[in-house]
Design a protein around this nucleic acid. Structure first.
Length: 338
DNA sequence: CAACCGTGGGA
DNA sequence: TTCCCAAGGTT
């Protein structure tokens, strides 16, 4: 089974795999961009962002020379904004430390911000067509079912085991490894899905532990999700007579790091203390919007206020049209309302 | 090691 | 409505 695995996977992929994704066979830079965008993010969500991003930042040099604000503007709505900040930082590392050429070794790739072992393996394999090994959610799910790996897959023992299997199954030849890498992800994404897997069309069903022992629904073990707390945030939309709006850049650390939002705090009273705008307590609540982050929830209380004068510290008057910075998705939606 | 870090969509 | 997940990495 181990001996025949790669060959059988390749044959399946030739007929049933994905061969027309926009970043495929485009070289290391497009592979890098797509791999970062695809972290924890579905293909159909990524595609429009990928096209716009590549249009504006067609190569490493243009990405490195751009401002972080503009990079985040193109990332706005995708989420996990550290990915964009790290990617931008990584492009500058390539420019300044690698002479503008993306390195083609595992160790060097992993020195770039935001590139871990799996993403480095993917760039080596898919981007450079050199031998590289990945270990993503698709691979973990496929292996846990085929080889019957139960329990928590994030422990170091299980991680070691999964990496060992992945390494053993990956062909030595670079081009074959590239096809293998794409095929592993396609099998996980198209057949060996989390819910309602299509075992009837799986090339490994006769050897699959989960399928042959009727444990497909139990593997891999779902990770326990802790209850998410809910906070209340007051989002203060302040406009002046020129229809500009008060926005401030959020600190790099924390939620929405590097993006721009209106003044936000847990109460209007706290906002009044920091902003000291006249008649702030008279501002009206437009509506309340619930928003879920990965580890907590918020009720966004949308308030409107009119003010003409100097922007308070940490904020600036901004015309949203042509603004070169990123707005978080729920904030952009909130500000677009009448 | 566990918490942190977004968003949209499907069930 | 609510829960869960989708090509992870950093701290």
């Amino acid at each position: 089974m181990i001996e025949r695995f790669a060959g059988r996977l390749r044959d399946w992929h030739l007929r049933h795999g994905r061969h027309d994704l926009p970043w495929q066979r485009q070289g290391p830079y497009p592979t890098w961009i797509s791999e970062i965008m695809l972290q924890q993010t579905q293909v159909r969500v990524v595609i429009p962002y990928y096209h716009a991003f590549m249009e504006r930042f067609p190569d490493v040099e243009q990405l490195a020379n751009a401002s972080e604000d503009e990079v985040l503007k193109h990332w706005a709505g995708l989420g996990y904004y550290a990915r964009a900040r790290n990617l931008h930082h990584g492009a500058r590392q390539v420019r300044d430390l690698f002479g503008g050429e993306i390195p083609n070794s595992l160790d060097e790739l992993m020195t770039l911000k935001g590139i871990g072992r799996s993403t480095a393996g993917a760039i080596l394999s898919l981007g450079f067509r050199q031998r590289g090994v990945i270990q993503d959610g698709n691979v973990r799910r496929v292996f846990s079912r085929i080889f019957g790996i139960a329990g928590d897959l994030t422990t170091s023992v299980k991680q070691r085991k999964l990496w060992d299997i992945a390494d053993e199954l990956t062909p030595a030849d670079g081009e074959e490894a590239a096809v293998h890498t794409q095929a592993m992800m396609d099998l996980g994404a198209l057949v060996c899905t989390r819910q309602r897997p299509k075992c009837h069309s799986c090339p490994f069903r006769s050897d699959c532990y989960a399928y042959t022992s009727d444990h497909v629904a139990d593997l891999p073990q779902p990770k326990r999700i802790r209850q998410r707390k809910t906070e209340d945030w007051v989002v203060l939309e302040v406009r002046n007579s020129a229809n500009q709006i008060l926005l401030g850049r959020r600190p790099t650390q924390g939620i929405w790091g590097g993006l721009y939002t209106p003044p936000i705090d847990t109460s209007l009273r706290d906002l009044e203390a920091t902003l000291s705008l006249p008649d702030l307590l008279d501002s009206e609540e437009v509506h309340i919007k619930e928003h879920a982050f990965s580890h907590f929830k918020v009720r966004l209380h949308h308030l409107r206020h009119r003010f003409d004068g100097l922007a308070p510290p940490e904020f600036e008057w901004i015309d949203l049209r042509g603004f070169q910075g990123g707005l978080p998705a729920p904030i952009a939606e909130l500000l677009s309302k009448e």
